[in-house]
Each structure stands twice: as structure tokens, then as C-alpha cells.
Design a protein around this nucleic acid. Structure first.
Lengths: 194, 194
DNA sequence: CGTAGAACTTAACCTGCATTAATTTATCCG
DNA sequence: CGGATAAATTAATGCAGGTTAAGTTCTACG
């Protein structure tokens, strides 16, 4: 069934009744997204929270020189959104597109707020989700401020061993904050400690 | 009253009854912290969430060379915690100390989880808090990846005009990810655009 | 007040990573 | 399979920001 992965992922954190699960599923929209096509672009208001049911998305910003900076990868089973745009209903400063052909479950922000009223456990689920995402973001920020490029690459490999296998190298470079050229050089040189 | 600022800050997001407010206050502990003294150090488990009732705290990591990297400032009215340590009950990788003499309201993580059961609105409050903090962290990460030091400084001034007035310059340097020497140079040179 | 320790400044030199550009290899798709 | 396009490599050169070190100003507090 299409919503299995979503419901299972929720069940790991909170318990919903069958009736609650059904109500939730009714609020969802399905969408397929071809590789390299956008879900959202900078400047649009992003009013959906996205669960990746299959495939892989990424969110990224584009700087003044046209260089992309990847903020997040969202493989199967992950959520992704531009929180700033979602919470304030302001134009997004990030883009989200598909790295592979993907299948998405969309939940409109306004629907979620409705659901909170009738399914308190869902609010708990998203609280837990936001707290964990915050913990991750804090750690990544600390890493960005204090580690060298080589250490950040090493971290990435440890934390996301499966992504390293499948992602084009240039995306990894963008995520850890260096150019593809420099990553290539690092990997093909007698590497130093760490 | 001591808990006015806390209750007011909660009331901006959700509504608690008087009875709920009282139950919350009963779970709180007060603590004063002298300037430059630690609330937590790296390696300890941080089991409290902290509301700053007066003064100012900061959280920061220390890298292999002994250099401090500030993750967050928490002036009066803000929350601060090491989420990783708090959620997983693992030793913290961040330090938290007082930049000024401060007065703190502490809430133990286990108490919060208890309170969620009897005060659903409190869970909503912390969901909103976590979501907003996440939005901020995402934006700061994007800035760290894509902006120059001068742009990050300019951003900081716009976003935290009051902090710029009171904070020692070296803390601002640490927050935006440069050395105090370089910040000083930037500020005393014919500055470029942005 | 005075003085000791912070905080800030200045300047010379250094380096990690960026930029550019040319070449090679991999991947997609008709 | 083959040709086009994207990804990865290599190498020369450049620069933002770091490092070190010495000097100066600020600030706390006895």
C-alpha cells in the first residue's frame, strides 16, 4: 500500500488508532517527481510538508555567483521542507528538486494544523521530528564552523554510508561546503589524518 | 513575579489556564549564574532545558586547537539547550556558560515529558519553538555555506541589533565563524559592498 | 585612582580552498 | 551501439581569511 512507509515511520514514535491513520491519509496528496525536476523554486511559497516515499530529493540555495549549496538530502522515509517559508508563508529562499525519480506524499500546512486538533499524537510526532532535526542542524553547524573539509567529508561518510554510494560526488561536495574540484583533489591525494 | 517573562512568552503562542500555569511553575527550578561560569560543560549529560529570565548565555563547541565556536546566544526571554544531549541523554558536545550575570529557569526533560500528558498546549508550544529554531538553524547554515564573512557580519547586525551593542566583538567573530583579528581588520578598513 | 588582565588593533606572512580551464571518463538515451 | 551531455580529474594560479606576534586600549575591581 502507498502509505505504509509513512504510517510505519509515525508508528515508531507515536501510536495512532486506525481511525486516526485513515483521517491522516485522507489529508495526504500523492505526487511523482521526475529526476531533475523541481518541487519548489526559490521565491514560491512552500505550503506543503513533504514525505519521501521513494527516490531522493534535495533542498539547496543558490548564491550570487550561481553556485548551489545543498542543505539537506531526503532519501526514502525522510521529510523535507523549507521551514522558513512554511511557517511564515513567505517566499522560499531554497529550492527543492528530485535527485532521482521520486514518489512523494504531500501534507498541506493548513491541513496539518487542522489534524493537530483531532489527533494530538500527530502533534507529538511532529514535535519529536522538529526537535531531532534541530539537534542535527546544530551539530552540522558546529561541524561547519570547526572542522576542515577532510573532516567534514569523513563525517558525512560515517553518517550517511548509503548516500555516499549512490550520490554523484559533486552533490556531496556541495553538502559539505567545498567545490567538486577540491573534493576530487582530496580523494585522489595521499590523504592526511582523519 | 519571577515567572512572568516565561508565562508571557508562552502566552504569545498558546493559551494555558491558570491551573496549568501553576503546574508548570511548580516543575521549574530557579538558578542564578555568575558571568563566565558554566551551566554545562562538554561531556556532561544536559538534562535541563533552560529559559533565560535575565542576563545572557551562550552555547559553544571547542575544536581540536582550543578555539571556541559559538552556536547560539540566549539573551533574556530565549531558550537554550544542547538538543543532542537532551534527546539522547548522551554526553554533550557543547558548553553553555553565562556571558553576563544571569537568572535562569530550568525545566528537567523528564518533567517536561510528564507535563505533556496533562498540558497538551505545552507540547504545542514546544513544537512551535522547535520548528522556529529549526527554520533559523537552516537559514544560518545556508548563510555559512554561501556568504562571505562581511555578509555574515552584516546579517548579524540586522538580525540582532541589540546584541551587537552589548556583546564583546570577539564573541560576534566566533558566532559568524571568523577570528577576532580578521573581524577587527574588516571593521577598520574601507569596507566593500554589503 | 592604579594596575592586571581582557579585549581590541595592526601588520607581515601563510594556507586551505576557490577559480579557471583543459582533458578524460562515465552516463544517458535514441 | 554510438554520440551527446554530464561528471570527474588534473593542474596552474589566486585570494579570503588564518596565524603569529607585538603593541595598544579598555575594564574591572582592590
Amino acid at each position: 500500500m502507498t502509505f505504509d512507509l509513512l504510517l510505519q515511520s509515525i508508528a515508531e514514535k507515536v501510536n495512532l488508532t486506525k481511525a486516526e491513520e485513515e483521517r491522516l491519509v485522507l489529508a495526504c496528496k500523492l505526487r511523482r517527481l521526475k529526476k531533475k525536476t523541481f518541487l519548489y523554486q526559490e521565491g514560491e511559497v512552500q505550503d506543503y510538508v513533504v514525505f519521501v516515499n521513494g527516490g531522493c530529493l534535495r533542498s539547496y540555495s543558490i548564491d550570487d555567483n550561481g553556485v548551489e549549496h545543498i542543505l539537506q538530502f531526503a532519501p526514502s522515509g525522510w521529510w523535507i521542507a523549507d521551514m522558513q517559508s512554511l511557517l511564515n508563508a513567505t517566499p522560499a529562499s531554497f529550492n527543492i528538486d528530485a535527485i532521482e525519480d521520486s514518489e512523494l506524499i504531500l501534507l498541506k500546512q493548513s491541513e496539518i494544523n487542522e489534524l493537530y486538533r483531532t489527533i494530538p499524537q500527530l502533534e507529538r510526532y511532529f514535535r519529536i521530528l522538529a526537535e531531532r532535526a534541530l539537534a542535527t542542524a546544530q551539530q552540522r553547524l558546529a561541524d561547519a564552523l570547526s572542522l576542515t573539509a577532510a573532516e567534514r567529508y569523513s563525517n558525512f561518510c560515517q553518517r550517511y554510508p548509503s548516500l555516499i554510494q549512490t550520490l554523484p560526488q559533486k552533490y556531496v561536495a556541495s553538502y559539505i561546503g567545498i567545490t567538486p574540484e577540491f573534493l576530487s583533489k582530496m580523494l585522489n591525494q595521499p590523504m592526511k589524518k582523519s
